[in-house]
């Protein structure tokens, strides 16, 4: 564990807490893409198949349970909670993400560390996470003004993988034969997808204005 990875995990945890706060405090999920939440639930379920088979540390197990539990709880809330579900932007959240799921799974069948059930699903989860934010970014552009908590949620979600890139650089420099091409390349693609969001987020922060993404 290094400071970059810990910062990444904490930033990821903060993004989850901000989203839970937004939904719980405002009893609304307006501006949140259910499709991105469902993709993230798939990411965590596919990545943490080793949850019960391999114990790495209490921290690792607890964080996996938190990410799986929170993503499923948010999907449930947005689909079935009688108050929250009314504020879901169903007509704006129309990204056909099964194409993404199919492409990522196909890529995982071709590109993986080892051809085993667990490794193929692990690679699938890495590729899927790289593109999971797309429905959310499309929804933000369509829904125009973005409320503060939603903007902060997306910001922290994007920032966490940037910390992981620093973690991989650090580990590459300090650990012999450390190579994680699948994670690194996917992490770079994932963070790059946030580039324009980070730009407009910075502009809104500098001008102390509402976050506006160009349509």
């Amino acid at each position: 564990m290094n400071i970059f990875r810990l910062a990444g995990d904490m930033t990821h945890l903060i993004s989850v807490l901000v989203l839970l706060l937004k939904i719980y405090a405002t009893k609304s999920c307006s501006g949140i893409s259910l499709k991105t939440q469902e993709l993230y639930a798939m990411v965590f379920l596919a990545r943490y198949l080793d949850l019960f088979s391999d114990f790495i540390s209490l921290y690792n197990t607890v964080m996996k349970l938190v990410f799986i539990g929170s993503s499923l709880a948010i999907v449930w809330c947005m689909r079935y909670h009688r108050v929250v579900r009314r504020s879901y932007d169903r007509e704006l959240d129309t990204f056909r993400y099964w194409i993404l799921v199919g492409a990522c799974f196909t890529l995982a069948l071709v590109l993986h560390e080892k051809f085993s059930f667990q490794e193929v699903f692990w690679a699938f989860s890495i590729y899927l996470e790289a593109v999971a934010i797309l429905p959310q970014l499309v929804l933000l552009q369509r829904s125009g003004n973005v409320d503060n908590l939603t903007g902060q949620y997306v910001f922290f979600l994007g920032a966490y993988r940037a910390f992981y890139i620093l973690n991989w650089i650090y580990r590459y420099l300090t650990e012999p034969r450390f190579t994680r091409w699948i994670s690194c390349v996917s992490g770079l693609v994932q963070t790059a997808l946030y580039a324009d969001f980070f730009y407009y987020y910075f502009i809104s922060w500098k001008n102390n204005a509402k976050l506006q993404l160009p349509a």
Binding site: H12, F55, F67, R180
Partner: peptide, 10 residues
């Protein structure tokens, strides 16, 4: 354990 080393990250 059976896992390859990269599963130590979340």
């Amino acid at each position: 354990s059976s896992i390859s080393d990269h599963h130590d990250e979340l």
